[in-house]
């Protein structure tokens, strides 16, 4: 399975680069300052560029996929979120996709029921796995905000407490760490397990999963195994946030591995399928109202075409039309 091994090897090599670089070549300035700055610039600029690149292309037609009753006659209840009629309904539809993965929730799988009748049963594993993966990533990223502020913000404290309520280890065990690893394992496993998924998966599908897994694992190692001293880490992050180009202090090598892999992810982001994070807001089948008969949608490049007019038609068929007693314009 070349397409699974290759990305795995790539991630391993990527992890090794900063380790060797910092441990043996003393390149802590490169890995602690230059690369993180580059990465953040590439991420922000790249993401923005991609968004602009999409936004500047017109939406010629109003093509929502209607997944519920349209608004028509007054006595028929319409489906606000599956067939939105007003802007806020369409907005809610998009947000429910973003936060709840609404469409994935619909997932079905054909199965045989006891009465030997075929039914398409609900199949929510992908929804659950995807949701667990994305939400824990979000919480983990937000938790990391403690490194970017001198005073830890209130919501970070709150997240920290909530996430660490299973206070079983020291330092506190975060549920999201376990969840995200479990979710990644599931997501990789389902790509390998099912013949269909094996066939459709590309290297570029495995790579980000492995990369994120590596970032999480290194993070966990730092926190629980090597018990990295976090004060210098925070100092360095605060320096970065304040646009300082000073030398980083003495920090454990694992931190550089973690930071480098995050930088790679940031750089990879705008050029890859990870941009689905932006695309989901723009999808014309989801973010448009289903009111195209009520309100005219304008196409900025509406092609001018020549169609066959009635008078041309009548010219062709006048005699036949007369015979059939059809009214005609010209005798």
């Amino acid at each position: 399975m070349k397409k699974v091994l290759m990305p795995l090897v790539m991630v391993a090599v990527l992890a090794l680069v900063p380790f060797l670089g910092v441990q043996y070549a003393g390149l802590s300035y490169l890995f602690g300052v230059i690369i993180p700055y580059t990465a953040i610039v590439v991420l922000l600029a790249g993401f923005l560029l991609r968004l602009v690149d999409w936004l500047r292309r017109p939406v010629p037609f109003r093509i929502p996929t209607t997944c519920g009753q349209e608004k028509s006659l007054e006595w028929i209840k319409y489906d606000r979120f599956e067939s939105p009629h007003r802007f806020w309904e369409a907005a809610a539809r998009v947000l429910s996709e973003v936060f709840l993965f609404r469409s994935l929730f619909r997932n079905t799988k054909a199965e045989l029921h006891k009465d030997s009748n075929l039914a398409y049963g609900s199949h929510k594993w992908l929804w659950l796995g995807g949701l667990a993966f994305h939400w824990s990533l979000l919480i983990i990223v937000l938790r990391h905000s403690r490194f970017f502020f001198v005073m830890v913000p209130g919501f970070t404290e709150f997240l920290d407490h909530a996430d660490g309520f299973l206070d079983v280890t020291l330092p506190t065990f975060y549920i999201t760490n376990a969840v995200v690893l479990a979710a990644i394992t599931f997501l990789v496993f389902r790509r390998l397990n099912d013949a269909k998924m094996r066939l459709i998966s590309l290297q570029t599908d495995y790579f980000p999963l492995f990369l994120i897994a590596a970032i999480v694992v290194v993070g966990i190692l730092m926190r629980y195994l090597t018990r990295l001293d976090i004060m210098p880490v925070k100092d360095q992050m605060l320096r970065l946030v304040n646009f300082s180009f000073d030398d980083p202090g003495e920090i454990g090598t694992l931190f550089y591995v973690h930071l480098f892999l995050v930088s790679v992810l940031a750089i990879y982001f705008p050029f890859s399928k990870l941009m689905h994070a932006g695309a989901i807001f723009l999808s014309p089948t989801r973010n448009l109202c289903n009111n195209s008969r009520e309100k005219r949608h304008v196409n900025p490049w509406n092609a001018s075409i020549k169609f066959k007019t009635y008078s041309e038609y009548e010219d062709n068929y006048r005699d036949k039309m007369k015979k059939a007693n059809l009214p005609i314009e010209k005798q």
């Binding site: 054909a110 045989l112 013949a195």
Partner: peptide, 12 residues
């Protein structure tokens, strides 16, 4: 590409 078990064809 071997038809899956959970398809209408497989069921029939």
């Amino acid at each position: 590409e071997k038809m899956g078990y959970s398809t209408p064809v497989a069921m029939v």
